[in-house]
Structure formats: structure tokens, C-alpha cells
Design a protein around this nucleic acid. Structure first.
Length: 606
RNA sequence: GACCUCAUAGCUCAACCGGAUAGAGCAACUGCCUUCUAAGCAGUAGGUUGCAGGUUCGACUCCUGCUGGGGUCACCA
């Protein structure tokens, strides 16, 4: 039930009758009353003072009195300065709870006929996934869920960067130093094995570069050392070999292509294991090896339309200075494409596959500029989906020492972190000894659910746009504002519901309708439950799973207070007992649904 | 250098897009398990919201300047 809709008509009428003023519905907004004041919702009076020449207290008093007289759902009111605090009648809350209980899909919106594509993960195939990828992946997966809940037809895609100089580096190092080892022979996960050779390349390349630099210094003692270093880096024999390898790959050299397929295959096997552990999936996977030539036709189109221009050397550019951006290269002078060329082509290809109104790209904020440009060009080209392009730009996950760098070994590896979290969950659960009767497979599944709950909540509770800090010294918490706390609250309620069912307690609206005056804890719980649909809508509008995470915590916290302060099974009044069981059932339902939106499981026992 | 972005309790994060006395968790301290799961509940302490101005009934929120982090400005992806 929407509280605002309950009150707006009466307030509009009040303004009409008392002041002869027509207000738009959108001008009347409410906020929930702060808990230090009495009331349920608050109308801020100040914005109306421009239209009504009156003291705020007087106007608030007038509206309050009118509401009590003309709207039976308003029980009473009080005025504090320019704030009108409105208390709704108990019937409103009883009706609200009844509606929630009668709706098995509570919080979900009906299909809206719109399609949206969400691209996330998009890994390189030269190294395993790390904590930064995890933030990306959980964000993308969760946003997809949230959009589905809002009625969108969602397609989740992964665009794998499987080609380029980086993978050639791993391939070259493997060719030189790998001795034909495989994931099987080495016992290493495929993505880690390939990542290992990427590091080997970097190490060897550094050595070779340093050696070359010494030679240069000896040969040109009068040159600026910085310039020589630059030259050495460019001419390092290993790098040149890697570049040559890329050329041969593009020409289709069978030996190179074979190696590329083999090593990428290892990586995909490794990624699949990690994705599965993370509990995420995709509806479709694109590979850059198939898309990297796309986009040239788009460039031709832009030239023909006069949107782009060609320089003397044959390179193609777009001038975005009028939009406050720069000139941007779209095609090299040798006719080959650059990053944005591919992205233009890929955008069209995606639309051909799935004609969507919105297209979400979950990509780090270091690409803010790139996506501004991409969207602008698509708009200039008149693409129907261009306005729906949204770059879900998220901040980096930093370590106390600064940014994570794969090559310097300061990354937090995804597989390692998951294993570590599972280990902690196992130890902690065993200490508590509440599930000693579980089969071992059942117990392991729970440890995993708790580990992922802690991890996902940790990464998703922060506003996506902001950078966040991860301190490996302090393990991710299982207490307080955490995923595990919410899971625990759910498990606690599940126990209540099992007992209620065993005792044959009827928790239907008919059974609790006759409940006497509700306690504040009960009203607060109903209010929190009632806020759920709006939170889902807000989360979609902002592309922010953090709003769902915060809501789930708030609901769990509210229930925990209710649970600690009111007894359920010792309640003498049968209707009240039914009501409390119903409140528990609805809280469990909503908690489970909210957790599902952020990809977290809700255990029945823990 | 130009542009983008961030700065809130000791630490990690909130604050419903301008509303009331800026809230949680962690860490510290104090209570509460012979009654429904204590991975919990209640409480104490902790703040000049980086600094200086401005806008207004009202500013963590908007504007200007400054300081300090991060990022982007490649014929890399």
C-alpha cells in the first residue's frame, strides 16, 4: 500500500478549499518521521509557504486538522516547527500487512515490455579473476536481478577479451619456458597457469629490457637516459616477439591459433569454475576475437553522413569539441580499428541480437571518458538505443597500499579469497555447533553460502560509484552490518516458522484481523516491509544494489529488535500470536527476496 | 597542464537527490542466555561533514576558490 497515495488527495483538497490553490501531486512529498518524533509520515511545510502566506506552524496545524476530519486513515497529528507529523490509524497497518501476505510476488513489478542488456565481467584471458573483477561481477549480476524485478526483460552478457598483445605475452612465455605443461600435469587451475606465464613474461621482459638499456647507455653515453629507457622498452626483443606473434595470429598462422585456442580453453575452464563458485551466470558470451573487426562499417556510415572526417594521412576522426570533449580517433591511418571502433560495431551487433531499450555496461570508472564518447557518437549516428546506453561506472577496490596490480603480485585472487572465506565460515560454524546433525555435503553447502553471503554483501553494500578499501589483514566480518547477519536473521525466523507450523498456528489475515493495539515494534516492522517495493524501484533507477543491501540490513535489524522484545509463542492473545507469526513469515519472505536480488542465499538453518 | 571524480566518528561505510538533534557496523567500555538460534538485543563514549566564502527559512547535499587523494587526456585495450 502506498502511504503517499492515501494522503495526497485529502491534502490537495485541503489546499483547494482553504486557500483556493491547485497543487500538483508531485509537489506533495513525504518522508518517514524521524524516530525521535511521534508519527508515521511527515509532511514538510516550508515548500508551500511561497504559495500560502502563512506561518509554517499555522499552516501545518490547518492541514493536520483537515486531515483528521476528512481522512479516516489519519489517526492524529502533531506539529513541530514546519513539520507536520501524521499518525495513521492501525487499520492502515493491518490492511498493509494483509496485502503483503496475500501477494506471493510482493515487491516484483509486472513486465513492462522493455528489454535491457547488462554486460559485466568482461575479463582478459591472460590472468585469473581478482577482487576487482568480483565487484564488477556481483554488481552486474545483481543489477540484472534488480532490473528483472522491475519488469524488464534482461539479457546478461559477457564480452571476453580473448585477443591482443596481453594474451600473446602469456603464450610467448609459455612457448619459451612452459615445457609443455598443462593444468593436469601441473595441478594448477587453467586460468592460474596462464596467469603464471603472464607474470613470467613480465619478469623476463624486464630483465631483457634492462640489459638492452645497458647496451644503449654504453653506445650512446650522451643521450638522455629517460629517452634511452623508453627506446629500450619499445625494442625489447621479447615484446617484439609478442607483437610478431599477434601479427601471425591475425594472419591465421595455424600453430599460433592452435596454441591460442589451447590456452584460452584452459582459462575458460578456470573461469567457469570461479563463476560457478560465485553463483553467477550469463545468457550469452561474446568473444572479441569475433568482434574486433566490427565497427568499420559504422565509421563509413559516419563519414557518409558527414559526422566524421578524414585527415590527410587517411585516419578517421570525430570532432566532439562542440560537446565539450576532444577529437577522437576512430580508424588508424593504416585502416585498422581502435578500441572505440570495436565498441561501436559491438553495440550494433548487440542490438541486432537483442533489440533493447537500455544497454548497461558494468565497467570501471577509469573508462568514464570512453563511455561518454561512445554514447555521444551513437547518439549522433541516431541509434535508437543510444539514449539507453548506461555506463555503470564503479570505483576501484583498493588495498591499504593503494591500487591492485596484477604484475606486481598485489592482487587479491578471487579463488583464494573464496577459499579463505569458506574456511572461516566452516571454523566459525563448527565453534557454534548449531548444525552438528548436518550431513557433510549439506554443511559444506552452508559454509559456501555463508562465505559468499559475507563477500557479496561486503562488496555490494558500498555505493557502486565510490571506490572502496579492502584490508586483507582484517577478514570480512560475520557480525554486525554483514551478509551473514541477514542470513542469520532469516534462519532464526525459519526456526520460528517451523515451530509455528508444528503447533498448527494459523497466520492468515483472517486469524490476525482481530489483533488488539499493536506495539511500536510491530508497526515499525510493517512500515519497513511496506517500503520494499519503492526500494526495488529506486535500486533500478540508480543501478545501485547497495540500496537493496541497506534495505535488507534495515529489515533484519528491525525484526531482530521485534524478536528480542516481544515473545511470539508465549503471547496469550491468539490473534496477536497469529499476527506475530505472520509478521515473521512476511519478513522471511521479503528478506529472502531481497537477498536473492543481491545474489545471496537465505539458509533455513545455520 | 586541462578535464572528471572523491574527501563524513580511530577504521569501514550510510544519510530517502535541500529538511528536524548527521546514522550504522567494527574496535573500546557496560548490561542481557534455567523462555522462540547470543553469528543476537539494549546502552555508554566517539563529529566544527578537508579548509574559506556564498546562495536560503534551512546546506554533508547547490555555487566559487583553496588543499589533499584517485582517474582520464595513446594511431593501447
Amino acid at each position: 500500500m502506498n502511504i503517499a497515495l492515501l494522503l495526497i488527495p485529502t491534502i490537495s483538497k485541503c489546499f483547494e478549499e482553504k486557500f483556493n490553490i491547485q497543487l500538483l501531486d508531485s509537489e506533495i512529498t513525504f518522508q518517514t518521521t524521524r524516530k525521535e518524533f511521534e508519527g508515521d509520515v511527515t509532511l514538510v511545510i516550508f515548500p508551500f509557504l511561497k504559495k500560502v502566506q502563512e506561518k509554517p506552524e499555522v499552516l501545518a496545524q490547518t492541514i493536520g486538522e483537515y486531515l483528521v476530519q476528512h481522512n479516516p486513515q489519519v489517526a492524529k497529528f502533531n506539529v513541530v516547527k514546519g513539520f507536520l507529523n501524521i499518525s495513521l490509524s492501525q487499520a492502515v497497518w493491518m490492511e498493509t500487512l494483509t496485502q503483503i501476505a496475500n501477494d506471493p510476488n510482493y515487491g516484483l513489478f509486472a513486465a513492462n515490455g522493455q528489454k535491457v542488456m547488462v554486460e559485466y565481467s568482461s575479463p582478459n584471458t591472460n590472468k585469473p579473476l581478482h577482487l576487482g573483477h568480483m565487484r564488477n561481477i556481483f554488481l552486474g549480476y545483481s543489477v540484472a536481478n534488480i532490473l528483472k524485478a522491475n519488469g524488464y526483460d534482461v539479457m546478461k552478457v559477457n564480452l571476453v577479451n580473448d585477443r591482443g598483445i596481453h594474451i600473446c605475452k602469456s603464450m610467448l612465455a609459455y612457448q619459451k619456458f612452459g615445457n609443455g605443461e598443462t593444468p593436469q600435469s601441473s595441478g594448477m587451475k587453467g586460468d592460474h597457469l596462464v596467469g603464471h606465464y603472464y607474470v613470467v613474461f613480465d619478469r623476463e621482459n624486464k630483465q631483457a629490457t634492462a640489459q638492452l638499456l645497458e647496451e644503449y647507455k654504453a653506445a650512446y653515453p650522451n643521450e638522455d637516459p629517460e629517452k634511452l629507457a623508453e627506446k629500450a622498452a619499445k625494442n625489447s626483443p621479447l615484446l617484439l616477439e609478442a607483437q610478431e606473434m599477434l601479427r601471425q595470429w591475425e594472419e591465421g598462422n595455424p600453430e599460433i591459433v592452435q596454441l591460442w585456442q589451447t590456452m584460452n580453453g584452459w582459462v575458460y575452464e578456470g573461469f567457469d569454475v570461479t563463476y560457478q563458485k560465485m553463483g553467477v551466470d550469463f545468457d550469452k558470451t561474446y568473444y572479441e576475437s569475433n568482434t574486433y573487426l566490427l565497427g568499420k562499417a559504422v565509421v563509413e556510415e559516419g563519414l557518409a553522413k558527414g559526422l566524421f572526417f578524414k585527415k590527410e594521412d587517411g585516419s578517421v576522426w570525430v570532432d566532439l569539441t562542440a560537446d565539450g570533449l576532444d577529437q577522437k580517433l576512430l580508424l588508424r591511418s593504416d585502416g585498422t580499428s581502435v578500441y572505440i571502433t570495436q565498441d561501436l560495431g559491438t553495440a550494433d551487433m548487440k542490438y541486432a541480437d537483442f533489440p533493447m531499450q537500455k544497454s548497461v555496461y558494468v565497467v570501471g570508472n577509469e573508462q568514464d571518458y570512453h563511455f561518454k564518447v561512445l554514447k555521444l557518437i551513437l547518439q549522433k549516428l541516431g541509434r535508437s538505443y543510444a539514449d539507453g546506453v548506461y555506463h555503470l561506472s564503479y570505483g576501484m577496490v583498493e588495498l591499504p597500499g593503494g591500487k591492485m596490480k596484477s604484475r606486481e603480485g598485489t592482487v587479491v585472487d578471487a579463488d583464494d579469497l573464496i577459499d579463505e572465506m569458506v574456511k572461516i565460515a566452516r571454523e566459525r560454524t563448527k565453534e557454534l555447533g548449531k548444525i552438528d546433525d548436518f550431513e557433510s555435503a549439506e554443511a559444506e553447502a552452508l559454509y559456501h553460502a555463508l562465505a559468499m553471503g559475507a563477500l557479496k554483501y561486503y562488496l555490494l553494500r558500498v555505493d557502486p560509484k565510490k571506490k572502496m578499501l579492502f584490508n586483507p589483514e582484517e577478514s570480512i566480518d560475520f557480525q554486525g552490518d554483514t551478509g551473514v547477519y541477514i542470513q542469520y536473521t532469516h534462519a532464526k525466523i525459519a526456526a520460528i516458522l517451523r515451530r509455528a507450523q508444528a503447533s498448527g498456528i494459523d497466520a492468515s489475515p483472517a486469524a490476525f484481523a482481530a489483533a488488539p493495539v499493536l506495539a511500536p515494534q510491530e508497526v515499525e516492522l510493517i512500515q519497513t516491509l511496506a517500503a520494499y517495493p519503492k526500494r526495488i524501484a529506486d535500486a533500478a533507477k540508480e543501478y545501485a544494489p547497495s540500496l537493496i543491501a541497506a534495505y535488507a540490513y534495515e529489515l533484519a535489524k528491525t525484526y531482530s529488535r521485534f524478536y528480542a522484545e516481544l515473545s511470539i509463542f508465549n503471547e496469550a492473545d491468539e490473534a496477536l500470536k497469529s499476527l506475530r507469526v505472520a509478521l515473521s513469515a512476511q519478513t522471511a519472505k521479503v528478506l529472502k527476496a531481497a537477498l536473492q536480488l543481491i545474489g545471496i542465499q537465505a539458509p533455513e538453518r545455520m
